[in-house]
Design a protein around this nucleic acid. Structure first.
Lengths: 221, 221
DNA sequence: CGCTGCTTTTACACTTTCTTAACGCCATGT
DNA sequence: ACATGGCGTTAAGAAAGTGTAAAAGCAGCG
């Protein structure tokens, strides 16, 4: 059974989340404040953490930063709308995904399963997302076993997205990993390559979904 | 009886591996540190090496690089990290396979037998790709039973391509395996030799196809 | 020494890929 | 409705990578 830790100051929200999670067989523990949340996390070793960014006292970002110092447990951010910059910051610090309040339970559970899906030990250096397969050793990509011709940049870009398949990848993260070191261009050229990739992936493969103002997410259909 | 060398800093892991291997009839020797591991390898001449990447002191990658300078013993990488890039690097330098901790003993043994068998077949001194035949033992090549006159560099280059026939071979891989250790020249002289090879292979033999920005691929027509 | 065969260097035309810029679209907010 | 900002799309020039030939180093050897 999976253990989930809820860190949120609103009791109402905690109760709602607890109900949803327990109905799915999660064992739930709660914390109403950041410092307590960290202690709970250390003590209970949850398999997933639901963290509200709008915490009183210790900032949600701060909680995440502290948590990441010793744990790599999947973290799902809960935030209200229009906290774009904070959301981005959270994702770059190491949050796995976010949902904006108010959210549907279906969406919440879907995100939970995605971020919890442990990357099962791949013995060959390849990344598989649905019908898409990336062979990092040979720099080969294939879709439904059919070879996919990608340029170096396209390959690097798709690799970053595929490594975090199902989760959001910030534009900054993409820029850092694909255009390492050089141009800090926010997005000018990125859009073009995304466009090329989408064309090559076609209908069959995973979709590259845009999260306005944040980044992109690779989703299998 | 096969001899196995374990290079891992954790005594617990060494003990576990020793038990598993000895139960399968391996003669086992150990080293807790990279430098010692290299000495052990030189002294005992193992038939297979199990190398942990997360070594203190000398990096596991570094150990592998040094080992590959004079030995082509099969190497199985052990690592806790799920970092694809490190995996790729290890495989490119010349590791034979990769297992992430924690792993089951059955899986470990399966991979061991695979890489040892692969080594065995690789030593069958011939590589055949279509009409092309490479005699590794005598350093002779033939195309349609007609002898093909190749210079040492050309032979080494064609060998690398033929070993991975049909797949892309990265320029880095080529440089590492043909010009081992020395010039870090990215591609300057490589293009010339590729050109020579293509001429000598002519129309009949396999084609050397370029993947711009990545490397080359040997394809049979 | 000059020859010979191999490797490396140099140079330039050519191809592929990357970047840049422009424009239209859709959403949101005034 | 109109401006705004972020995104998708397209086309063209810039940059990087590649093919090819010829010449320049570099051994060994008569």
């Amino acid at each position: 059974m999976s253990k989930a830790l809820i860190i949120d100051d609103e009791q109402q929200m905690r109760r709602l989340l607890r109900m949803v999670l327990e109905s799915r067989g999660y064992e739930v523990c709660e914390a109403a404040e950041g410092q307590l949340g960290l202690q709970e996390a250390a003590f209970h070793r949850p398999d997933v953490v639901l963290l509200d960014l709008g915490l009183p006292g210790m900032n949600g970002i701060e909680v995440l930063k502290r948590l990441r110092e010793w744990s790599d447990v999947p973290v799902l951010i809960l935030s209200v709308r229009d906290q774009e910059t904070i959301k981005v910051e959270a994702l770059e610090i190491g949050a796995d995904d976010y949902v904006t309040k108010p959210f549907g339970t279906a969406e919440l559970l879907a995100r939970l399963t995605v971020i919890q899906r442990r990357r099962f030990t791949r013995q060959s250096a390849e990344i598989v997302v649905g019908a898409l397969k990336l062979d990092l050793l040979h720099h080969e990509a294939s879709l439904d076993e059919a070879p996919l011709k990608l340029t170096p940049t396209e390959f690097a870009l798709l690799k970053v997205l595929a490594e975090h398949a199902g989760r959001i990848v910030t534009q900054n993260q993409i820029m850092k990993q694909v255009w390492a070191g050089q141009s800090s261009d926010p997005s000018e050229g990125l859009r073009v390559h995304i466009n090329h990739l989408r064309k090559k992936l076609g209908e069959a493969g995973p979709r590259i979904v845009n999260e306005p103002g944040i980044g992109y997410r690779l989703e299998e259909p």
